[in-house]
């Protein structure tokens, strides 16, 4: 079985993520991973070989801060220029319903590769909704606590102390989600076209119909035409 299904141009495709969403996604990927590996240097209490990759502990600290600023810029660009997209994203998250609960309950089986029949999903399925809530929340906490730790002199010491464990918890939370998300968005056989949706922006229409029936009907199907 191929790691990722082949990208095919000869079948009908529909847009799933616009350029700004993809820029934001991959911008976060690069800056998050850089921050993660430079941050683990301290979290794991002195991993010399990991620090050496970034030019020692001070080098890792510099990369951490530069990436953190990069991530902040990506967030700002995404939120300002992609404001409409963010609102649509949040609107879809608010449609959390029975179909999502059923999806999450069936998900462990689907995850391991058992064939399951899940109810029709909106643009983001139950699991994606969970990821869309947990990861950005963690990132928001990471950014906030990160800047407080960076400039402790201008914040009350109590807030700085809270930031230390907040930064750690948010890091572990986000990293756990990223571990799952990276796998589910690429090599998981059940995810099929998801990778191309974020890489090239389009997915196969038949895949969209099968995996996100409600979204497909509303955006590209009969419902959208009748409106």
């Amino acid at each position: 079985m191929a790691l990722i299904p082949e990208y095919r141009n000869d079948v009908p495709r529909v847009e799933r993520f616009n350029f700004l969403a993809r820029f934001s996604h991959w911008g976060h990927t690069v800056t998050f991973l850089l921050c993660l590996f430079t941050g683990l240097v301290l979290f794991l209490d002195g991993v010399n070989w990991l620090a050496a990759i970034f030019g020692g502990y001070r080098g890792a600290g510099l990369v951490h801060r530069v990436s953190a600023v990069g991530m902040t810029i990506v967030i700002i660009i995404g939120a300002v220029f992609g404001f409409k997209g963010v609102i649509e994203w949040i609107k879809d998250l608010l449609r959390f319903g029975m179909n999502d609960i059923k999806f999450i309950m069936l998900f462990p089986l689907e995850f391991l590769g058992f064939p399951v029949k899940v109810p029709p999903q909106t643009r983001f399925n139950g699991g994606e909704k969970g990821n869309s809530i947990v990861t950005p929340t963690c990132v928001f906490l990471l950014v906030l606590s990160g800047y407080i730790m960076w400039f402790p002199a201008i914040f009350p010491v109590g807030l700085v102390r809270v930031s230390y464990w907040t930064h750690d918890i948010a890091m572990v939370g986000a990293t756990c989600m990223v571990c799952m998300h990276a796998y589910l968005g690429s090599f998981h056989p059940g995810s099929g076209e998801s990778f191309w949706g974020m890489w090239k922006g389009t997915v196969r229409a038949d895949w969209a119909k099968h995996h996100h029936a409600i979204w497909y009907d509303e955006t590209y199907g009969d419902k959208s035409k009748s409106e």
Binding site: F111, F114, H188, D206, H211
Partner: peptide, 25 residues
């Protein structure tokens, strides 16, 4: 994730490639 990587591929080969996740679903 590593477990799923292995089990989902084993199960897929058992159920055959035409399974609901296969090509395009």
């Amino acid at each position: 994730s590593a477990t799923s990587f292995v089990t989902s591929r084993i199960l897929a080969s058992k159920h055959g490639e035409h399974g609901e996740h296969g090509e395009g679903g």
